[in-house]
């Protein structure tokens, strides 16, 4: 039951993009087409889950064991950056097909604040490892959901006559605002 609450809360109620404002850059940048959005979503799911597991272990067994929690930010960003590099190298070798699908998105993910954000939130919310993994997966699904819905809307928006000053990012942001309004309807479920 606890896991179900974590999942519903992360995907719908506190959606990572539309309610917490993490990962806006890829949300605005790569959400022009549904197919690229799905690719980005897959890469985020992969890296976010891995990063949360590794950072949780580091926080519990190194930082807290030695009493050096103030190094959290430095430790986490270094770990995430090297993790992304490693995932890229391993994927290239082991599964070229998966690399072809996700490869271009992987370097972008290092500076994606959603990954670091979820790793820090997992620690702040005092989750155990299993809850942390569920939380990371649910957030990645929430991210992909927002991205794919938004890409679908933007594909239609391309065919509309938008006033010249509003073309591109401004109209995309206003659309995201309306989408966020729709997601606010989920408030109070959990």
């Amino acid at each position: 039951m606890e896991y179900i609450i974590i999942i519903i809360s992360a995907i719908f109620v506190n959606n990572i993009v539309l309610a917490q404002f993490l990962g806006i850059c890829p949300f605005v940048g790569v959400s022009n087409k549904i197919s690229t959005s799905i690719g980005m979503g897959g890469a985020v799911l992969f890296v976010m889950t891995l990063a949360t597991i590794v950072t949780w272990l580091i926080q519990t067994y190194i930082l807290e064991a030695l009493g050096i929690q103030f190094l959290q930010t430095i430790a986490f960003i270094v770990v995430i950056a090297s993790l992304v590099q490693m995932v890229e190298i391993i994927l290239k070798k082991v599964s070229p097909a998966l690399y072809a699908a996700l490869g271009v998105f992987l370097p972008l993910i290092t500076t994606n604040c959603a990954v670091l954000g979820v790793a820090i939130l997992t620690i702040q919310k005092d989750f155990n490892l299993m809850e942390g993994v569920v939380f990371a997966i649910a957030n990645a699904v929430g991210f992909s959901l927002a991205l794919v819905i938004f890409a679908g809307i933007r594909e239609h928006l391309d065919l509309m006559e938008v006033p010249s000053g509003m073309r591109g990012v401004p109209i995309a942001l206003v659309t995201a605002g309306i989408l966020a309004l729709a997601f606010m309807g989920f408030t109070g479920i959990v």
Partner: peptide, 12 residues
Amino acid sequence: APGAFIALGYMI
């Protein structure tokens, strides 16, 4: 949250 997106869109 929605107001943030809308206000920033118009500001840009």
